[in-house]
Design a protein around this nucleic acid. Sequence first.
DNA 1: TCGTTTTCTGTAATCGATTACATAAAGTCG
DNA 2: CGACTTTATGTAATCGATTACAGAAAACGA
Lengths: 339, 339
Amino acid sequence: MNGKSPKIQDVAKVAGVSTATVSRALSNPDLVSDKTRTTVLDAVAKTGYRVNRAAKNLRKRQSDAILALLPDLGNPFFSQILSGIESVFTTSDLSLLVSDTKGIREDNLLDYFMDMRADGMILLDGAIPRNILSQLQSSSFGNRIIFACEWKPEFDFPSVRSDNFGGAVQAIEHLYGLGHRKIGHISGPRNNVLTKERLRGVEAAMADLDLPINREFFIDGGAFSLDAGAQAARSFMEMSDRPTAIACGSDLIAMGFISEISRRGLKVPDDISVVGFDDIEIAGSYIPSLTTIRQNRTQIGVLAASYLLDQIANRITDNAAQVQEVGVKLIARQSTAAL
Amino acid sequence: MNGKSPKIQDVAKVAGVSTATVSRALSNPDLVSDKTRTTVLDAVAKTGYRVNRAAKNLRKRQSDAILALLPDLGNPFFSQILSGIESVFTTSDLSLLVSDTKGIREDNLLDYFMDMRADGMILLDGAIPRNILSQLQSSSFGNRIIFACEWKPEFDFPSVRSDNFGGAVQAIEHLYGLGHRKIGHISGPRNNVLTKERLRGVEAAMADLDLPINREFFIDGGAFSLDAGAQAARSFMEMSDRPTAIACGSDLIAMGFISEISRRGLKVPDDISVVGFDDIEIAGSYIPSLTTIRQNRTQIGVLAASYLLDQIANRITDNAAQVQEVGVKLIARQSTAAL
DNA sequence: TCGTTTTCTGTAATCGATTACATAAAGTCG
DNA sequence: CGACTTTATGTAATCGATTACAGAAAACGA
């Protein structure tokens, strides 16, 4: 150990073979004889050799990294998904790069591929501008991209997502089962795909159950946040005729809503039942604990990461862009009650 | 545009100069004449050239990436810090790599430096095994590491953290100010530095205020989680003589605690006042909204990232390992009330 | 004007791996 | 046994940038 990192040359010298053989012994063990392989491995252990990633990647024209692009790194919703993604990459010796889309707008996503910073991307933001996506799609990197959670309907990149429609249906059916007939909905960000799917589910379920759809009961929250819920609560309080139950576009909306109406004297679930969507960590400990639709976020991460790896390695034969829907499940807790 | 990424050679040809000049024009503009520079920049624009990171990094023996190492990527607590970190790196053209310590134990952290995957590290986990840290410290990469949030007292890596001691003091003083004299504490993970600092703060404040320290009122939560709080609530219910106020080691503990005692018929803040620590996003919308100690997590991320960059680039002259403490602030809400 | 310094640019070595190609040795088969 | 295939290894080109070194041109000073 003289402080300098050993190079493949050093290993070759110690093992008494050529650098080519060392390289092969490490990355293509079948190509060398058993004896040579053990000699080389010993030499590697002895020298403490580690492959220099920059050199390897330059030669192989790759980067050994995947970028996960989030709408907002500060949003805790995504941490579970990241965790799922990372668990896959760790076993593949890939690095996980993260960035949020705020920094992206101007400088181009394509650059990550062009300058070899990433071999693939997992997009968690459905609001990436169309022109950037077209550019990606028509480039030679179009098949190194996958959407997770959110997606962009006009593009046929593969995607992994929850069954948002089905989740909304479950929420409505649950409320119906408890006897509720006047059901409202607070939706998320206006142009968000999740918002639309969930709204579609709500309406479909209501139609199926022969419930009259009262537009007054549909509040446009405008975001998935606590604030949106609180805001919606204010609209709610002003209604002359109020629904007895509300299905929310997210848990945060639900909590913001409950928080605000409680402050104004209403009780959940006595005066109104509330269902969330997501099942974030605190949902079970909120007071009242929140009935919600559980999304398996870790699995979404795992599936997206695995699929992307297969895709990059060309292991996917069927080249129709694939949509994987992950099942969701209603978790009944105390924010909903029989009428 | 024939689909192949242009190389520096191509730019050189278009601009009618050597590759050396192109390189200089891009990374050391002062070294070339004004005229040449504009010619080169035009050629770059015309060809759509982007520097190949692997080649650049190989030559410069760097990686253009910083690793953030979290105890648990799935834990939403860290997302804000990551966001702060990322905001700094984006402006520096550095990539942010993330990983959690679960994958680390076996394979060595030092490897990230050895194989040039990272130029530096931000450690958010105080529980990294001692031998790994010693190895890092004694390597030539010892000065490319910084702790954020948590830290390891025996090592003198620089670190950025909240004023945990001061936060605990504020919590106790707040409760004292409301008239509470029988004050308890639920602590976090046993060997965690934050746990220790906060406990120290609690005890110091109590001593200062001449409050008797009743060991029965100190519950060992064992973790910062909701569950720990719920568990502690059960111990609490069994006490013959109960404190009238509790300072918790984290917001999650506080919420788990409130949730559980509410289920058992106690009311917050009527029967007992509760203070959290962290001010996580939902704290303000919890019911009751949580009085807590606000940590500026984004700023911790920003400071850690900036300091690390300075350290790597400028070789910070003052080589005494620096500890930066970020101030915290008590946010009074509805989970605490006058006795 | 001539020598000296400064500014600008080009040539070619270099970073540290992988791998195409060549070749020697070993194995196969009629 | 000789022709042919397979296996194992080495030599050297290659990936695409940066930069040490050198030389030409321009600026400067006396």
